[in-house]
Design a protein around this nucleic acid. Structure first.
Lengths: 141, 141
DNA sequence: TTATCTTTTTGGAATAACTCCAATCTGTTG
DNA sequence: CAACAGATTGGAGTTATTCCAAAAAGATAA
């Protein structure tokens, strides 16, 4: 048992930012910790701003958005588009898909390893597959 | 060859609205024709408003949205959520999935019959699968 | 360290896509 | 046709997100 984040709080996150070519600024470090220090999560910009404020981190909304997008481009986050009018950012960037509970806006991951999507048609001319998203929309019964 | 929409322009659409329990008002009829008389399409609210205006149909934006949602509930349309910040409405309600060209916001259908999604995990407790969406995100190369 | 340069951050204004509402209008039914 | 429920409307309101130009903060060089 190694209480890493307690003894060397910034080190791991700092390296991830460096590796991604992002300057480890105060805001980016703080947001990265909020995002990555608590396992897999699905976060909206507003939630993250709230958590930052709550944790005493001063960040503007503009920076929240900038950071979320930069992290996404760097492959540290994945943007999940399932709900019209709001984007979720997923800290799980491994190969997986989503359950989306309609109405309550809850998202759950499930591993892609277990499922098979076969016989996909060829993509439109002049395009290349970038990713395949499977969204299983469920309803509470 | 039966030029149906030329000789009995309102009849088919009228029946679809009736069947869906929607009063066939002037606006709904006009929008239904714009939507359904030209094969499978992916339309945004703004596009539809534009087409209506262009075709001399007077409709407000509020009605466009009301109608799109009512048609969706009635199963005449399907809402496609792939692009953060805008909804597409698909006049193809058969079992199919989508190619989405990132950047250019183009959507293409592909039939679900050809593909297989197997070994889906069980949905979260107390929920039932309503639909499975497969979105193949492609990029121009 | 300081000077300098570049990148980031910021508040606030701006935009985009909807949604809401109260007044008006229109199908429908008796 | 009368009367009422349902539909439509313009405009204001909301929500999520982006834009912008000024100020601040890292990085680099000397």
């Amino acid at each position: 048992m190694k209480p890493e984040s307690a003894t060397q709080p910034f080190a791991p996150v700092l390296d991830r930012l460096r590796a991604a070519g992002l300057r480890p600024t105060r805001q980016r470090l703080a947001l990265a910790r909020l995002l990555f220090d608590r396992g897999d999560r699905h976060v909206t910009a507003e939630q993250l701003l709230g958590e930052a404020a709550h944790g005493g981190v001063r960040v503007s909304m503009a920076t929240i958005y900038n950071t979320l997008h930069q992290f996404t481009h760097a492959g540290l986050l994945r943007e999940v588009v399932v709900d019209p009018g709001r984007s979720y950012f997923d800290t799980n960037v491994s190969d997986h898909h989503h359950f989306f509970v309609e109405g309550s806006s809850e998202l759950y991951d499930f591993d892609a390893a277990g499922i098979e999507v076969r016989h996909l048609p060829v993509p439109p001319d002049g395009t290349r597959i970038a990713r395949v998203d499977v969204i299983v929309r469920v309803k509470k019964d």
